[in-house]
């Protein structure tokens, strides 16, 4: 009985979480435009996506923004972590508090603030969105990389120097591989944060430049087309795929540690 209740409870959670997405996926294959009548299976909406230049340019913007902002944010965050790691306890906590504020801050505040800042220096458009995305991604990547620094045994860097390697070679050959899992997961987190963002993009974008989220939002006023269901389904699949890849990339590290716990016995 207890077992049944457990499973039932779990089933309800799953239904609430995934039923809406399932409906969306089903509707994306529905040839009827109605949301309640099943008009037969079709792939037309998917075909339409690739025929609508508006969607294609928004898709392109989204991808370039996600990968680009994640790339730059990761580099900046890595450099920041090297500095933060070298700080004393007091400075460390101050900088970490400052780093955390943008994450806790309401998106709309960040969005308006970024707009006010950027509009002073450039016309709002693709570049301003890119700068905004890099900015809000940095704290997330720092938070993903920094724990790796804390786990890092400084003596492996010293050991590399001791064995004849220069400072730069030691960093790339010995330190960076240890940080890699944090860097990779930070990068992917930044990609999804950027793809996910609506509010900040909406405030920092200029006329004529759209990402998928802002474009879908503008479509709502005209009434949502089934192409949007198809597009959302694709985005959902990509997100799932990215998550699986990120998990596979960082999982082996953990598993190895679990199987061979370091012991003092021979």
């Amino acid at each position: 009985m207890k077992n049944f209740i457990c499973k039932f409870y779990l089933a309800i959670i799953m239904i609430f979480l995934y039923a809406p997405i399932l409906v969306l996926v089903v509707l994306s294959f529905n040839s009827s435009k109605s949301r309640v009548v099943w008009g037969g299976f079709t792939l037309d909406w998917y075909r339409d996506i690739f025929r609508t230049s508006q969607i294609m340019s928004a898709l392109q913007n989204t991808i370039v923004l996600a990968l680009g902002s994640a790339f730059f944010a990761t580099i900046i965050a890595l450099l920041a972590c090297i500095g933060i790691d070298a700080m004393r306890r007091r400075e460390y906590s101050v900088v970490m508090a400052v780093t955390n504020i943008p994450m806790l801050n309401a998106d709309i505040v960040t969005g308006i603030a970024m707009m006010l800042l950027l509009i002073r220096f450039m016309p709002l458009g693709f570049s301003s969105i890119m700068l905004a995305h890099i900015t809000f991604n940095i704290p997330y990547v720092i938070l993903s990389i920094l724990p790796r620094f804390n786990q890092l045994d400084v003596s492996i860097y010293e050991a590399a120097r001791d064995l004849g390697a220069g400072p730069v070679y030691s960093f790339f050959k010995v330190v960076l591989p240890e940080l890699a899992p944090g860097i990779v997961s930070g990068f992917f987190m930044a990609v999804t944060m950027s793809m996910d963002d609506f509010v900040i993009t909406y405030f920092t974008k200029g006329p004529g430049v759209n990402t998928l989220s802002t474009m879908i939002y503008s479509q709502i006023r005209k009434g949502i087309q089934p192409t949007m269901y198809a597009l959302s389904t694709i985005i959902f699949l990509i997100t799932v795929l990215v998550l699986i890849v990120a998990n596979i990339l960082s999982a082996p590290q953990k598993k190895r540690g679990m199987i061979h716990t370091p012991g003092n016995h021979i």
């Binding site: 003596s155 010293e158 050991a159 001791d162």
Partner: peptide, 13 residues
């Protein structure tokens, strides 16, 4: 001069 470190400092990867 080479050093043997307290916590071994082997390169884990």
């Amino acid at each position: 001069i080479n050093t043997v470190f307290q916590k071994y400092a082997l390169f884990p990867h």
